[in-house]
Structure formats: structure tokens, C-alpha cells
Nucleic acid binder design. Structure first.
Length: 606
RNA sequence: GGCCCGGUAGCUCAGCUGGAUAGAGCACCAGCCUUCUAAGCUGGGGGUCAUUGGUUCGAAUCCAAUCCGGGUCACCA
């Protein structure tokens, strides 16, 4: 087991200490660490961490409360973590020492990378975004992009070496569709001549293709053809097919048009990506990889893992894995989608010697990736084991799936612009724009608008599908990035007033003496800060940024409650004030770190 | 039909490696700005955790069946 050494969080320390206690107290009985469950103590009881006693009852043949006393006494005596304990009907509630909390704060409050893991020799590729070059990005792509970017950063923070990859789908029949429609109907329109962003311009002709196609099909059906024949014989479709053949043959004219139109799209994408704050370390293009995989198939045939049918087509039999037969090469020797994916998987692996390869792809492709991994495994390719499908639910409209063919999509660029103007509207409404330059305001609106959008898409479990109603704007209250940004701005405001930098030097509060007892809320905040490394690790283990959203929201909520209940600037004593300043310094720092991983920035004023 | 995923408050979701009386946000109701930013705070109503059975000291959580919703099973990508 290659488990990296992680900072032991309090909860983990409690668990191990309880395990030690049991081993020492009852050396004749065999316990496993998995028998010990440690939870946070429910707020209605005194204590901070709770050891559940029921699991030991049977083995020890003692009453749970009697066991609890023995463990409780042992923990008080042998660890330096607890000040007292309390047993309530089978639950051992341990109260953490105030001094532990204070020294935790002293040790970590200046640590801006608290929770981060050291770099390990583990290379992970995260493939995400992977757009088609026949249309602009829509709202659904945003989920993909934010997820991929966030998971990449989360993995980096956990010590992995991450390669962010984008596999651009830049060829194929759908690309030819917008090309042919442009040729026939655009009169040479370009992004420059029309002022339309390149990806949108090309997307418009993709829609145009489908309009014309539908009309032609309707006409043919009216002329007596059946639907299938009509779809095959529609002139614009035949022209697109013909174009695809020419493209594959390397026809110079077609290739030039293809490069030109793709170039427009890339310019558009670049602008979108820049605004979204996502980037890539490695670009793959399908036009360069679509022929890969054939060699793997040949090897597979030689090894006898694959078989050839009479018509020359090549298949893999997955029946013993509960699946079906799957085609890998057509009768004419050309490859299908999965074939190039086999090749690309191997290419990625060889390019970067990957330990792990994530695919951020919507859940409609669950079966496809499952098959991909299975085939690679059967072929004995070493890249197989590292493949992991980070599957996410599609974003749908109340009316159903978004279909770019029919133009029923929420456009990504539009959405971003709308969120930013919503942020502007709300900020102006709140009347807090004084003292900002117009550049600062522009930046602020972008932070708030984009933050809200990212948070909205990242706060739910990736695998759940979500329905977005464009008529209801994304909220800026409650469980939102805005809430967290606001808490951060409040903290910064206090720190400014107190002349404490956002990242104070380690010596700033060194004179702090543990003063008196901690208030309930002070302790709650510190104990919550202490959990950050565990949350960060969990987010990485599960490839799930939403844990960071939940955690950060709770932390901001705790701060707001604290802020309302107790003054920081006018604390009861200088020690209290320093303690609280340290607490909020660390709070702000963790919020910035956690949100930063999600690509969400926190303003110092708002 | 086979396989996969989901079903928790009116709505959006946490909780799911079993633990105490199931939690947030939105919406709704009632309060709180001469005091560090009210984009905030406090309180309230609102639940058969889809249904049924099983395992267990204990089930929203695990198992089985059923119902509902979605995805997928192409010589499409």
C-alpha cells in the first residue's frame, strides 16, 4: 500500500488514541481500527469528538458506559488532547483542550498552504473540456471545464503532478456540416467582416446546416421517399459526406477551409477559456490522433484477443464481462470512435508516463469508457489500470436536453456576461461602490459573477445531473460563492482596521498567552479550521470539489455567526483580540485557498 | 428487455465506509443596523429519507424486491 503520510487530523488522532486505549486496556481481545467510529459531537451534547461505544460491547461483555469510562480515563491520561469527557448512553464525548486549540492556531495561522501535501512522484492526466470545433461552448461545457480545472488543482494541492489535457474534436462529419453550410450560405463572412466571435459564427452555420437539412428531408419525404432514404439523399448531407471524404484524402482546398474555420473557432475558444480562467498543459487534436489505434488492433489480432469476421471487420468479445461484442475496425479497415480512443490512451500514457489518467466526460459515455478500459486491459496495455472516468451528470434545461443542432442552448459566453452584469446590478444596489476605481469595480463584478457561476456548478456532487432554469438567475445569497466572498471581505476589513496584513509574519502574535477559556464559538471555529486538510484530501480522493464548497460555506457561516456575536476589534482583552485576529487570518487564508482551487477569487472589499 | 446512475422539506441540495431528536440554502413568517461591511445574524413553521421486506443493539446509510425518473446497449462521435 503506497499511502502518502498525511497530517493527522484531530479526528484521526482520536481514532488512533482510542485504538491504543483498547489495545492496552484489553490486550486479550482482538480489535481492529475499523471498529472505532469517531464523529463530531452533536451540538446538544458537551464535547467535540465522540467515540461510539456499542461496537465493543459484544467482544468485551461489559456495559458500554463502563467501557467508556476506561477509554475516557486512558485518553485523558495518555494523550494531551482532552480536558474532560462525558458519557451519554453509549457515546463517549471527548472535550478537546483549549490549549491544544490555541497552539494549533499559533502553529498554523501564518501557513498559507495549510493542508497542502508535498509533491509526490505520481503523474496524473486530467483530460477535460474537449470541445467540438463546430459550435461555441454552452452551459453544459461549463460544468465540464470547471470540474476539470478544479479537480486538477485539487490533485496538485494533494501532491500529484498534474497534466491538464484538452483533446479537441476538430474533424469529422459534424465539422464538415458547418463548413458546407458556410460555403453555401455565408458569402464569405468572417469574424472580422461580421464582428461575430469565431466560434459563434461557425456555430451559426452548424445550425444553418440542420435547418436546410430538415427542409430538404421534408421535401424528399413529400416527394415520396421514406425518412431514412430522405436523410441519406438530402443534397446538403451528401455534400457534407463528400467533403469528409475529400478531407480524409487530404484535398488541399478543403483542408485550407478547414484550417481557416477551425482557426476562427480557436480564437473564440481562447477568449472564452481566458475569461473562465481555465488552461491546459497539453493539447491533443483528433485530426492527429484519429488514425491511432489501428496498430493496437493488429497486435490484438495477433495475440488472439480480437477476432475478424467474414467481411473483414474486427471485433472484441466482451460477453464474459457481461457486455456484448464491440466493433473496432469496419469491414473497409477504417476505424471507429473507440479505436482512436484506444490509441490516444496509449499515446497519453507514453507521452507522460502516467500513473493515472482521468477523463472528465458526461455520464452518457459511461458505457463507452468502461468498454475502453476493458479492451485495453484485455490487450495487456499498461495504460489500462490508470484510466478513471470522472463522470458527471448533464446539465439540462427545464425543457430537456440542450441541443446545439436546434439552437436550444444556453450559451456559455452569454451566461458569463449575464452573471457579471447581475453582480454589477446587485453591487450597485447595495450602494457599496464608493472608493473603488472603475477598473476595480470591473474586476469585482467579474469575481462575483464568475464566482457565483463556478460555485453553482461545483457545489453539487458531479455525478448528479442538474436542471438549470435560465429564467431563474443564479442566486447571490445563501449557499453561494458570494456569501464566502462577503465573509472574506469582512475579515479583510477588520484586518485593515487593525493593521494586520492578510499574511502576517510568524512573529506577529508570538506573545500570545493562552488566556482563560475559549468561547464556544472561538473553539468551534478553530476546530473547523483544523479539519481543512482532511477535507482537501477527501476532495482529491473522491475527485469531488463539492466538499470544498460545503466546507468553505460552513466556515464562512461560522465566521458570520461569530462576527455577529462577538467583537474582534473590541475583544474583552488584548489576548482575546489577538486570538480572534489569528483565527480570522487563518479563516480568510483557508477560504482563499479552498476557493482558489475552484478558480474562485475572493475580494478584499465588496 | 440487459446493464449503469439517481429518488431526502414546496424548490435546490448535504448527510450514504451503519450511530444520539435527519441538516443547510432558497421561498414563507417574526425579530435584529447610534457598535468591526445587514450581500449579514437570530428565531419559527415545514419530513412516512419513493415503497415493502430483511440484516443489526441501532438503517436515510447495507442487502433483496417493487415503483418512478434518467442514461446506455450503432460499421455515430
Amino acid at each position: 500500500m503506497q499511502q502518502t503520510e498525511r497530517i493527522m487530523t484531530l479526528a484521526a488522532q482520536v481514532k488512533h488514541a482510542a485504538f491504543d486505549a483498547l489495545k492496552h486496556l484489553f490486550p486479550d481481545d482482538s480489535f481492529t481500527i475499523s471498529m472505532i467510529s469517531v464523529n463530531q459531537t452533536k451540538p446538544e451534547f458537551t464535547g467535540n469528538y465522540t467515540v461510539v461505544l456499542f461496537p465493543f460491547v459484544k467482544l468485551l461483555r461489559q456495559k458500554p458506559d463502563a467501557i467508556g469510562v476506561q477509554i475516557g480515563d486512558y485518553l485523558l491520561e495518555k494523550t494531551n488532547l482532552f480536558s474532560s469527557y462525558d458519557i451519554v448512553s453509549g457515546f463517549l464525548n471527548m472535550t478537546v483542550k483549549d490549549s491544544y486549540c490555541v497552539s494549533f492556531l499559533l502553529n498554523h495561522f501564518t501557513d498559507t498552504s495549510f493542508g497542502k501535501q508535498c509533491k509526490a512522484d505520481c503523474r496524473v492526466m486530467v483530460e477535460y473540456s474537449s470541445p467540438n470545433t463546430n459550435k461555441p461552448l454552452h452551459f453544459g461545457h461549463l460544468r465540464n471545464n470547471f470540474l476539470g480545472a478544479a479537480v486538477s488543482e485539487i490533485l496538485k494541492a494533494n501532491g500529484k503532478q498534474v497534466v491538464k489535457a484538452n483533446l479537441v474534436n476538430d474533424r469529422g462529419i459534424h465539422i464538415c456540416k458547418s463548413m458546407i453550410a458556410w460555403m453555401w450560405y455565408a458569402n464569405g463572412a468572417t469574424p472580422e467582416s461580421t464582428g461575430i466571435k469565431g466560434d459563434h459564427l461557425v456555430g451559426d452555420y452548424y445550425v444553418k446546416f440542420n435547418d436546410v437539412f430538415k427542409q430538404e428531408v421534408a421535401g424528399l419525404i413529400a416527394a415520396g421517399k421514406d425518412e431514412k432514404t430522405a436523410e441519406k439523399e438530402a443534397p446538403i448531407m451528401m455534400a457534407a459526406q463528400d467533403m469528409l471524404r475529400k478531407w480524409e484524402a487530404g484535398d488541399a482546398e478543403i483542408r485550407t477551409l478547414w484550417s481557416t474555420m477551425n482557426g476562427w473557432v480557436y480564437e473564440g475558444f481562447e477568449k472564452s477559456y481566458k475569461r473562465l480562467g481555465v488552461s491546459f498543459d497539453k493539447m491533443y487534436y483528433e485530426s492527429e490522433t484519429y488514425l491511432l489505434g489501428k496498430k493496437i488492433v493488429e497486435d490484438g489480432l495477433r495475440k488472439g484477443v480480437l477476432f475478424r469476421k467474414e467481411d473483414g471487420s474486427v471485433w472484441v468479445d466482451l460477453k464474459e464481462d457481461g457486455l456484448d461484442e464491440k466493433l473496432l475496425l469496419r469491414g473497409d479497415g477504417t476505424s471507429v470512435y473507440i479505436t482512436q480512443d484506444l490509441g490516444t490512451a496509449k499515446l497519453k500514457y507514453e507521452d507522460f508516463r502516467l500513473n493515472q489518467s482521468l477523463y472528465v466526460i458526461a455520464d452518457e459515455q459511461n458505457y463507452h469508457i468502461q468498454v475502453l478500459k476493458l479492451i485495453l486491459k484485455k490487450l495487456g496495455e499498461p495504460c489500462a489500470d490508470g484510466i478513471y472516468h470522472l463522470s458527471y451528470g448533464m446539465v439540462e434545461l427545464p425543457t430537456g436536453k440542450m441541443k446545439s443542432r436546434e439552437g436550444t442552448v444556453v450559451d456559455a459566453d452569454d451566461m458569463v456576461a449575464e452573471m457579471i452584469s447581475l453582480a454589477q446590478e446587485q453591487t450597485e444596489q447595495s450602494g457599496k461602490t464608493d472608493g473603488f476605481t472603475s477598473e476595480e469595480l470591473t474586476r469585482l463584478y467579474e469575481m462575483i459573477g464568475l464566482g457565483a457561476l463556478k460555485f453553482y456548478l461545483l457545489r453539487v456532487d458531479p455525478k448528479k445531473r442538474m436542471i438549470f432554469d435560465p429564467k431563474e438567475s443564479i442566486d447571490l445569497h445563501g449557499f453561494t460563492a458570494t456569501f464566502i466572498q462577503y465573509a472574506h471581505a469582512r475579515i479583510c476589513s477588520i484586518l485593515r482596521r487593525e493593521n494586520v496584513p492578510l499574511v502576517p509574519g510568524a512573529t506577529r502574535f508570538q506573545s500570545l498567552q493562552p488566556a482563560g477559556e475559549l468561547l464556544k464559538l472561538e473553539k468551534e471555529m478553530i476546530l473547523h479550521l483544523e479539519q481543512y486538510p482532511a477535507i482537501l484530501a477527501e476532495a482529491a480522493d473522491e475527485f469531488n470539489p463539492s466538499s470544498l464548497c460545503n466546507y468553505s460555506f460552513q466556515l464562512a457561516q461560522l465566521f458570520n455567526t461569530f462576527y455577529d456575536a462577538h467583537s474582534i476589534s473590541k475583544a474583552e482583552s488584548e489576548e482575546k483580540k489577538n486570538l480572534r485576529l489569528m483565527t480570522i487570518v487563518m479563516t480568510a487564508s483557508i477560504l482563499r485557498h479552498a476557493m482558489g482551487l475552484l478558480g474562485i477569487r475572493l475580494p478584499e472589499k465588496m
